[in-house]
Simulated scan of single mutants.
Amino acid sequence: MFGERVQPTRAEQKRRTTARVTEAAARLFQEHGFHGTTVRQIATAAGVSVGAVMAVGDKESLLSLVYDQAIAARIPAPPEAGSTTPAVDYLSRYFHPFIDLFVEHEELARAYFRALTRGRPENAALGGLRTLTEGNLTAAMVNAGMPEARARLGAQVMFTSYLGELMLLAAGTTDHQQTATRIRHTAEFVTA
Results as ranks from 00 to 15, higher is better:
109 A>D: 02
14 K>N: 10
37 T>A: 01
168 L>V: 10
100 D>Q: 12
52 A>H: 07
138 T>D: 04
24 A>Y: 10
186 T>P: 08
66 V>S: 13
60 E>N: 12
24 A>T: 14
6 V>M: 09
115 A>H: 07
44 T>F: 09
106 E>S: 12
72 A>D: 01
75 I>E: 14
95 F>T: 06
99 I>R: 03
100 D>S: 03
102 F>N: 04
111 A>M: 12
109 A>I: 12
62 L>S: 07
50 V>F: 03
123 N>I: 05
140 A>K: 03
108 L>Y: 04
186 T>A: 15
118 R>P: 12
100 D>G: 04
9 T>G: 04
39 V>A: 02
97 P>K: 07
52 A>Y: 07
147 P>K: 13
76 P>M: 10
167 M>V: 12
183 I>R: 04
41 Q>A: 00
22 T>I: 14
5 R>C: 07
13 Q>S: 15
122 E>R: 13
151 A>Q: 12
132 L>P: 09
77 A>R: 09
34 F>M: 01
184 R>T: 09
158 M>N: 03
71 I>V: 15
112 Y>R: 04
183 I>Y: 05
135 G>N: 09
49 S>N: 08
16 R>A: 08
3 G>C: 10
33 G>L: 11
137 L>Q: 10
20 R>T: 02
41 Q>G: 00
116 L>R: 04
110 R>H: 11
6 V>D: 02
153 L>W: 06
117 T>W: 08
140 A>R: 01
185 H>V: 11
9 T>Q: 01
179 T>S: 14
151 A>G: 13
7 Q>D: 07
70 A>F: 12
69 Q>D: 03
21 V>E: 02
86 P>A: 00
5 R>P: 00
138 T>M: 05
123 N>W: 00
163 L>S: 05
91 L>C: 02
113 F>Y: 11
57 G>N: 09
135 G>K: 12
80 E>W: 07
95 F>G: 03
126 L>R: 04
11 A>H: 02
89 D>A: 15
6 V>C: 05
111 A>V: 10
157 V>F: 04
132 L>E: 13
42 I>C: 03
49 S>R: 00
28 L>R: 06
183 I>M: 04
105 H>F: 10
30 Q>T: 09
172 G>C: 15
147 P>V: 13
68 D>K: 10
38 T>N: 00
107 E>H: 09
14 K>V: 03
108 L>H: 03
14 K>Q: 11
72 A>M: 05
41 Q>R: 06
187 A>H: 02
33 G>D: 10
30 Q>L: 11
103 V>D: 00
168 L>Q: 15
110 R>S: 07
57 G>F: 07
176 H>N: 13
108 L>W: 10
145 G>M: 02
169 L>W: 13
41 Q>F: 02
67 Y>H: 14
172 G>V: 14
49 S>Q: 02
77 A>N: 13
72 A>W: 08
141 M>F: 08
171 A>E: 15
192 A>D: 14
182 R>N: 15
25 A>D: 08
130 R>M: 01
33 G>E: 10
145 G>P: 01
130 R>V: 00
145 G>F: 02
70 A>M: 14
92 S>D: 07
32 H>P: 02
159 F>Q: 01
171 A>Y: 14
87 A>H: 07
145 G>N: 06
92 S>A: 12
128 G>N: 03
171 A>N: 15
161 S>A: 08
189 F>K: 10
107 E>N: 09
110 R>M: 08
95 F>E: 00
38 T>W: 00
35 H>G: 05
192 A>P: 14
106 E>P: 12
